[in-house]
């Protein structure tokens, strides 16, 4: 099988190890990975802030890059949501772009969903002897309905002690531009999340969105916490080649 990786701009620029981990996992499972350098962003920051024209401009770039690709795999619940749910609403349903957006949305997968539902895999061969908890990122859970898959995959990692996070489905407070428009509220919500992470007793908090992790991690670090953040792909790639 051959898939096309949409790595997301934040992973590309800030967290490249997440993209590299994704490739390692997929390769190990016998999936070949393409990376089209024309990709940039899904358009979400503008879309979520109400700048639909700008969002459309950027989404158009995505549609061009992936018009003829195979299945698209995205290591982010929120960018996958943008591509699967919102990009199709940016264009008139009967336009060429509207049709293309729907067509691509149909073959776009969030990483954990791709592994579990398409490949039927719950074990990537990773090994990690630590206490780990999982935070559900909102769009992934509530727009895409993906909550079971990442848990299966985490529990499939050898040596992991999985600790369920209290109120795991409660928002971390990031919310895209909300995190700077209402920075104080965003951080206050995040503090509640950090409290529950500490309550869980885990050493690592895993999520499938680097944006949430950047927010949670930033708060943990500011507090001087020993708890570390880990993207799901990074955890699942903890195996020896």
């Amino acid at each position: 099988m051959r898939v096309s990786l949409f790595v997301t701009c934040l992973v590309d620029q800030v967290f490249p190890q997440v993209g590299l981990s994704t490739i390692r996992i997929l390769n190990r499972l016998g999936v070949e990975v393409d990376f089209d350098e024309r990709q940039a962003c899904c358009g979400q920051p503008a879309f979520n802030s109400g700048h639909s024209d700008e969002s459309r401009t950027v989404a158009r770039g995505f549609l061009e890059a992936y018009a003829d690709s195979g299945p698209v795999v995205v290591p982010s619940g929120s960018c996958a949501t943008m591509l699967k749910v919102f990009v199709p609403t940016l264009f008139p349903p009967d336009s060429r772009e509207g049709r293309l957006a729907r067509e691509i949305a149909g073959r776009t997968y969030e990483l954990s969903d791709f592994l579990v539902s398409v490949l039927g895999v719950t074990r990537t061969g990773a090994r990690f002897e630590e206490d780990v908890t999982y935070h559900d990122s909102c769009h992934q859970l509530r727009e895409l309905g993906i909550g079971r898959q990442p848990r299966l995959l985490i529990q499939g990692v050898e040596g992991v002690r999985f600790l369920e996070l209290p109120n795991a489905a409660r928002c971390c407070g990031f919310g895209g531009t909300f995190s700077v428009k209402f920075a104080d509220v965003s951080a206050a919500i995040g503090e509640d999340k950090v409290d529950t992470i500490h309550q869980s007793g885990a050493r690592y908090v895993v999520a499938n969105d680097v944006s949430c992790l950047m927010h949670i991690g930033g708060l943990l670090q500011r507090r001087g916490s020993q708890v570390r953040t880990l993207h799901l792909a990074e955890l699942l790639a903890k195996f020896e080649e």
């Binding site: 802030s49 909102c138 209402f182």
Partner: peptide
């Protein structure tokens, strides 16, 4: 409209 993290718990 901006006083929300768009988490979707309301829906």
């Amino acid at each position: 409209p901006f006083a929300s993290s768009l988490c979707g718990a309301c829906y």
